[in-house]
Every structure is written in structure tokens, then in C-alpha cells.
């Protein structure tokens, strides 16, 4: 993949990818942008060995998810798990706070469940594709979705 081809793929995917990452980072758009940049750079570094341009979308989402997990691990390492878990929408840079309730609900989900829910409902991925992205079995993804749905039902009933 040439540099130009890579940039054209980035231009085609960046909006949806960043939207997904903002939700994954429960509204912290600055962190989401940093993770997006890091994920694209990781993809660029290994794009010579990537031969399926039609799967670029799923590939970049997988890198993004792994980068997010790495970031969480490093935060946990330096700040402790409790502090990392307390990143709520009140820390978010999303100025409007329109999605406060949604972010709060997403924040209560573990990363794999959160990712599965977002990929399924927001990006429209199939269970098989989600299983490949989060590196889990299809049954596990179904469980994540079911649990995620229950959490979100709670949110909807409170609204």
C-alpha cells in the first residue's frame, strides 16, 4: 500500500473511527484523537505487509481497540485501577455534555463489552467481524452484547 493509498483510506475511515473512539473513551475526545493518531501510525508502519484493502476498516478498528486497551493498561499501571475506572464524562472534553447519560452507561461497561456494543450498534459490524476485532469467540461477543444491552436498558428506563 502506497502512502497516497493509505491517506485515502484514512480520509475515508477517520470520521467513523474517531466517533467510535470518542464513545470508547466515554467522551474524552482529546484522548480519542491521540489513540486514533497512534492507531493510524501503527497501521502505517505495518501497511507494507497488509494486503487486504477491503478489510482496512476492520483492521484499523482492531488496532484502535488494542491501542485503547494498551492505554488503559498504562493508566492502570501508573494511576491505579480505581482511578482509571473513574474516568467519567465529567472529565470529558466534549463541550456539549449532551451524551452525559450515554457516557455514564458506557463507562460502566468493561472494555470488551463496550467495544462490542459500539461496533454492533454504532458501526453495524456483524458478530463474526466483532469477534475478529476484539479477538474473542462469537459466543463471547454475543454475551458481551447481551450484557451491554441490559446495561443500556437500565439507562433508557431512567431517561
Amino acid at each position: 500500500m502506497t502512502r497516497e493509498q493509505f491517506i485515502s483510506h484514512v480520509e475515508g475511515t477517520q470520521k467513523a473511527f474517531r466517533r467510535f473512539l470518542v464513545a470508547l473513551c466515554v467522551g474524552d475526545s482529546q484522548l480519542a484523537d491521540d489513540i486514533a493518531q497512534e492507531a493510524y501510525i501503527k497501521a502505517y508502519l505495518s501497511c507494507d505487509s497488509f494486503n487486504s484493502p477491503d478489510k482496512f476498516n476492520a483492521w484499523i478498528f482492531r488496532i484502535g481497540y488494542n491501542t485503547f486497551i494498551d492505554h488503559r493498561r498504562s493508566v492502570r499501571l501508573f494511576a491505579g485501577y480505581d482511578e482509571a475506572g473513574n474516568i467519567t464524562s465529567s472529565d470529558a472534553t466534549d463541550a456539549s455534555f449532551r451524551y452525559q447519560a450515554l457516557y455514564a452507561a458506557l463507562d460502566s461497561l468493561p472494555p470488551k463489552e463496550r467495544t462490542s456494543v459500539l461496533l454492533f450498534y454504532m458501526e453495524g459490524y456483524s458478530i463474526k467481524e466483532i469477534a475478529e476485532i476484539v479477538e474473542a469467540s462469537q459466543d463471547a461477543v454475543k454475551q458481551h452484547l447481551s450484557r451491554g444491552r441490559n446495561h443500556l436498558r437500565g439507562l433508557l428506563s431512567n431517561e
Binding site: I7, A23, I41, Y121, M122, R153, L156
Partner: peptide, 29 residues
């Protein structure tokens, strides 16, 4: 739930700025 996510349009930083930053990082790489 579907509607909730379909209507989810968070405020993102400018696309131009994001791409400019990314191109800068790519040049560094």
C-alpha cells in the same frame, strides 16, 4: 438502543487539523 447510537454525533476536532497532524507524524515516521 439503535437510535441512541445512530444519533450519536459527538463534537470532533477539525478533520483538516487531524489529518494535518497525522501527516506530520507520518513524515516523522
Amino acid at each position: 438502543i439503535k437510535d441512541l447510537f445512530q444519533n450519536f454525533q459527538p463534537e470532533l476536532s477539525s478533520d483538516t487539523l487531524f489529518l494535518a497532524g497525522l501527516k506530520k507524524h507520518m513524515e516523522a515516521v
